[in-house]
Simulated scan of single mutants.
Amino acid sequence: MLHQLPLYVSLVFGATTLATVWLFYRASRQSILVLVVLLAWMALQAGLSLAGFYRQTDAMPPRFPALVIPPLLVLIGLLRTAGGRRFLDSLRLDQLTLLHTVRIPVELVLFWLFVAGAVPKEMTFEGRNVDIVSGLTAPVVYYLAFVRKRLSGRGLLIWNLICLGLLVNIVLTAAMAVPSPVQQIAFSQPNIAILYFPFVWLPSVVVPIVLVAHVSSLRQLRRKASEKQTDLFTH
């Protein structure tokens, strides 16, 4: 674990990760398989980080891609298989929208880590990262779209696209700041936090779940828009 870091930072982030998993479990219509797979993946990444696997930053090839490549391969598999697409389309759109509220505590944790010297300023809302906007607007969008039913599917689709762009921005910034032979930015204060427990769960658990939430939402919203267009032409 990172030394000289206030305990509350790790506790808040650990709770945020568990909340992310719980909300995705709810979005999956309480699939026990989804919950078991996510908890097993969390345990594996926790074990690797506690063993110091990711702290060997001079290794070639770099080891930190092992945090993100497996989830990306799973997402590709979901998109390329009929069963995977059915799973993505079965996720609850309302819960996927509410899930993005976890991006608020994530951004607070990133700021605390910056103050502690564990991530660069570029990864915070004082730098290049404005992803906190996604978290702050998520409960408003949820309320307007699913409680008051005042926000159209088109509006929800546009919001997802904007928030997906904000996610890609911070992911690329974080990846370029990780100490490795291919590091591109933040050499004076690199992104070392994700190499330690529990922050290893940010790129390996929280970000992939948020990405899947966007992909699933966009698929469902595009399908609904297409069905409405079809209905207009057939009536």
Rank of each mutant, 00 (worst) to 15 (best):
M1H: 12
Y8F: 15
V9I: 04
S10F: 10
A19I: 01
A19E: 00
V21N: 02
V21Y: 03
W22K: 06
F24C: 04
Y25Q: 03
R26Y: 10
R26Q: 09
L33F: 07
L33T: 07
L38G: 09
M42L: 07
Q45N: 13
G47R: 14
G47T: 05
L48E: 01
S49L: 00
L50D: 00
A51I: 01
F53H: 10
R55N: 12
Q56I: 03
Q56R: 14
Q56E: 11
D58S: 12
A59M: 09
F64C: 02
P65H: 11
I69P: 05
L73Y: 10
L73Q: 08
I76G: 12
G77V: 06
G77P: 06
G77S: 10
L78I: 00
R80F: 12
R80T: 10
G84F: 10
F87T: 00
S90K: 12
S90E: 11
D94E: 08
Q95P: 04
Q95C: 15
L96N: 08
H100M: 08
H100K: 13
H100W: 05
T101L: 15
V102M: 07
I104D: 05
P105R: 05
L110R: 12
L110F: 14
F111S: 02
W112T: 03
L113W: 01
F114C: 11
V115L: 15
A116R: 13
G117Y: 15
G117F: 14
M123E: 01
T124V: 02
R128D: 08
V130D: 11
V133E: 00
G135Q: 02
L136H: 04
L136V: 14
T137C: 15
V141K: 12
Y143W: 14
L144C: 13
A145P: 04
A145H: 05
V147H: 07
L151M: 11
G155R: 10
W159T: 00
N160L: 06
N160K: 11
N160W: 03
V168K: 10
V168A: 13
N169L: 15
V171P: 10
V171F: 09
M176T: 08
P179H: 06
S180W: 03
S180I: 02
P181Q: 06
A186N: 04
N191Q: 06
L195Q: 05
F197I: 00
F197H: 10
P198F: 12
L202D: 02
L202G: 11
L202V: 04
V206A: 09
V206Y: 02
V207A: 07
P208Y: 04
V212M: 07
H214F: 09
H214C: 10
S216K: 07
L218A: 09
R219M: 13
R219Y: 13
Q220M: 04
Q220K: 06
L221G: 14
S226I: 05
T230N: 14
